[in-house]
């Protein structure tokens, strides 16, 4: 298993655990009438689950299992794939921090965290698509 695949999958497993904790918090809010601010974690919960867990698990598996790009470069453009891993994760962490804080403490003007997060995740996602695209081919 390539090193980047191990990074993607282990990071995805960590996000899965975090998503389940957030899901528990959201359920507890409804059950115990906790402060309404907890609801700010709802979009974060979905994105930790879908980007942090599902997409990264898939990216790790695709990087490992898609047909080889060439004999010299079996995994295609590896630096680009590593960039995708870093950009997506930095972007997602900024969102996890920034989105609830921007909702709960609007006067702190942390909207820029979300702007940076959006740009990093977009570039990271597209970088992975570019690396995978060239390996999706007929034999």
């Amino acid at each position: 298993m390539p090193r980047l695949t191990r990074y993607f999958i282990k990071t995805a497993l960590l996000y899965l655990a975090l998503a389940l904790v957030l899901g528990l918090l959201l359920a507890a809010r409804a059950a115990f009438d906790l402060p309404a601010e907890f609801a700010a974690f709802s979009p974060v919960f979905f994105h930790v689950l879908m980007v942090g867990w599902a997409a990264q698990l898939i990216f790790g598996m695709l990087f490992w299992m898609l047909p080889k790009y060439s004999k010299e470069q079996p995994r295609g453009n590896e630096p680009l794939a590593w960039s995708a891993y870093i950009l997506i994760n930095v972007g997602l962490v900024l969102r996890i921090i920034g989105e609830p804080m921007n909702t709960v403490q609007a006067e702190w003007n942390l909207g820029w965290l979300l702007v940076v997060s959006a740009v990093l995740q977009l570039i990271g996602g597209w970088a992975f698509i570019l690396t995978a695209w060239s390996r999706v081919k007929e034999r």
């Binding site: 920034g98 921007n102 909207g111 702007v115 997060s117 959006a118 995740q121 996602g125």
Partner: peptide
């Protein structure tokens, strides 16, 4: 999907 998500997140921040 990444593009649409980024546009919505941008809107939340800016």
């Amino acid at each position: 999907g990444f593009l649409l998500g980024a546009l919505m997140l941008l809107q939340k921040g800016l």
